[in-house]
Structures are given as C-alpha cells and as structure tokens.
Design a protein around this nucleic acid. Structure first.
Lengths: 197, 197
DNA sequence: ATATGACTAAAATACGATATTAGTCTATTA
DNA sequence: TAATAGACTAATATCGTATTTTAGTCATAT
C-alpha cells in the first residue's frame, strides 16, 4: 500500500523537478543527472517511472494539458447556461496553459524544437480530447434549443482551432504578450462565437 | 523609362528565383551565388535591389502576404452581402498562403527557424494590415444593421486571430493536412462567426 | 521488490585547419 | 554615366579528431 503511494508521489515529484529544470535551463541543458539530484533520488530510479528523458519532458507537457482538461470538465459541469460555459472554457484552455508555462521565460523554444515531432503527434490527441468536452456542452445547448443545430464534433473542433493560435506552442509567453491581453483576446473570440457577427 | 521597367522586373525575377531555391534547398543551403546564377545576373546586381540574403527571403514572404491582401481587397469590394464577404475573406487569407507555400515540402521549418525574430516582427504588421481590410467590411455591415454593433478594430483582429492557427507559419502544409481539409476548417470558423452558436 | 550509482556506448563539445559564403568595391559595359 | 559584373575579403561554416559529457543499463545493496 505504502509502496504504491510513494510510487505515485515520486512520479509527480520527478515532473515537478523536471518542470523547474526545463524552465531554467531548457531541454538540452537539463541532464538526467541534474534531474536525479534535483528530485533527490538516484538516476536509475527515474527510469523506473519514465522510459527516458524525452518521455519525462513530454509528461510535463501532458500534465499541463491534463490540468486544462480538468478545468474544462469542471466548467462544463457548472450550472451556468451553455453559452457562458463555452465562453469560459475557451478562455480557460488558453489561460491554464499560459499560466503553466509562464516561468519558461527563454527556454520554451529550445524544448519545442527538440521535441517537435513527438509534440505534434500529441497535440492532435490533446485537441481531440478537449473537443470532446466542448462537444458535450454543445450537444446540451442544441438539445435545449439555445444553439443552432449543427455537426457537434466539427463545431467543437472549430472552437478549439480558433483559440489555438493563443496557445504557447510555438509562441512563447513573451511573444504572446501580457496575460490580460491574451485573456481579452480569448474572451473576444468566445463572444463572437456566441452572438455571431 | 526602360530602366525603371527593367528594375521592377528584375526584383520580381529575383524573388521568383529565391522562391524556387528556398523551397528546394531551404534558407541555409541557398547561397547568394546560387541565387545569382538562377536569376541569370551577377551577385552584385542582387545587392542593388536587396539589402542582403535575409532581406530577399523576407521579401518572398512579404510578397505572399501582399497577394493575400490583394485577394482580401478584391473580395471586400465584391457585391456580396457583408457576411458572405467576410466568410470568403477568412478562407482566402488561409488558402492564398497555403497555395503559395505548397511547394515547400520539407524546407519551410528551416526557413522559419532561421528568420524567426524578423518574421515575428513582420507578422504583427501583416495581421494589422489584414485586420484593416476586415474592419472596412465590418463597419459597412454594422452601418447596414446586419452586424451587431461592436468595436470594429477589436473584432477584425479577433477574426484574423481565430484563423491564424491555420496559417503555415510554424506548421508546414504537410502538418496542416490536405488542402480541402484546411479549407473546410477555415469555412467552418467563418460560418460560426457569422451565425453564432 | 525497490532503489542505487558505477559503468558503457553514444552523443555532444572543443579546437585547429580548411573551405565556403555573404557582402563589398573597383573595373567594365551599354 | 548609371547599371552591372565578378574578383576579392572578412566572416562564417564545415571538417576531422581528440576529449568530455550524457543517456540509459545493470549488477549490487537495502
């Protein structure tokens, strides 16, 4: 029992340490020895939990997306009306990511360049998963008669796509601009979608 | 007279040649000697028209955006109703770019990586210029009472922003997917904006 | 059963020598 | 005499090789 508890725990500790080192030094300059020292375990231990350096780093990214998805789920189940929920969800998917990479001041480009192919592959999956959550609310809105009847899955993907250029995938937070500007832009896209032109 | 005509002409010939070489070999591997040979002039001649290699390459990009802008202008002045015009303009800004970088099968990433800072700076200006054209149609639609009254400039920027993730800025055409899929996605975003959810 | 860290093969870095290339500039041409 | 050419140069990139660093493994310890 205790074993499992520790095991779960150490995984997150490794990801926390990796997040710190990646934001400070970038992907290339974070060594597995650094990481082990930062976590406070031996190097071999990391390999008991992750397949390798790339896998650790991708898991850091996955965890951020998981946080975004949890936030989306929470909003999608709140008791606001569907339109308001979608609007907040659009903002949330942008801002959770923004806030989670804020401390990567310089070294995000390095990380993205190094893992580009693997990251691209995951991106498609991440967007798909987020679109699913949007689709639930869309369906509900259509059933309630407050949304135009339209292909739910396609519409969900369009909502995701329309906010993608605000994600810190290739634009660092520095390049994206101030937090409040980013939030305002996401909100504006949400407003337009809800009311139409 | 003839001098000026030739001058204008050679500029475009240089950009044509650069476009060919860049798409075939990428930024690093295109040498100014190659370029001169491809154009059929001496190297010094190129420097009479462009400040340098980077400037030539950025001008290739600028020319593509100019084409997109011309297309936007044309659509904005067509005799369709404002909503239809905006929809076509959203699709056009994506597709003109898509079609103009289609032949860059592998070497787009190289080019983008090499000129990233300069390219980022221009992007902001390009988007601004496109937004201006959108704003004209938006204003017209609002005056005619077919659009909700809203901040025109902000709305125009939101329209541009929402289609930006379909542009081949960091995603190559290969990564973006099939032409018809890209067009369908742009159209869907346009539809959503026009009618609302 | 889990964790460790010395170990190894592979990859990155350093460096001096060589080759290539961007950009210049004077001679040439139309 | 204005536009073009291409030889020239300083700067940058590439190469070959020696050296160092690092990702990932595995026999041993807890």
């Amino acid at each position: 029992m205790r074993t499992i508890a520790v095991r779960e725990d150490i995984r997150d500790l490794i990801l926390d340490a990796a997040d710190r080192l990646l934001s400070r030094y970038g992907y290339q300059k974070m060594t597995m020895d650094d990481l082990a020292r930062e976590v406070g375990v031996a190097k071999g231990t990391i390999y008991l939990h992750f397949a390798g350096k790339e896998e650790v780093t991708l898991s850091v990214v996955d965890r951020i997306v998981e946080r975004a998805k949890r936030e989306l789920e929470a909003i999608s189940k709140s008791d606001r009306e569907p339109a308001a929920r979608l609007r907040l969800m659009l903002i949330a998917r942008v801002m959770v990511r923004f806030d989670n990479v804020r401390h990567y001041t310089e070294n995000l480009g390095d990380l993205l360049a190094a893992l580009r192919p693997a990251l691209l592959a995951r991106r498609a999956r991440h967007f798909e998963e987020e679109a699913r959550i949007f689709a639930v609310v869309l369906r509900e809105g259509q059933r309630a008669g407050v949304f135009v009847r339209r292909d739910v899955s396609a519409t969900a993907h369009a909502l995701v796509l329309a906010t993608n250029s605000l994600l810190p995938f290739n634009l660092s937070t520095r390049e994206l601009g101030e937090r409040e500007d980013v939030e305002r832009q996401a909100a504006r896209i949400g407003d337009l979608f809800i009311d139409g032109l």
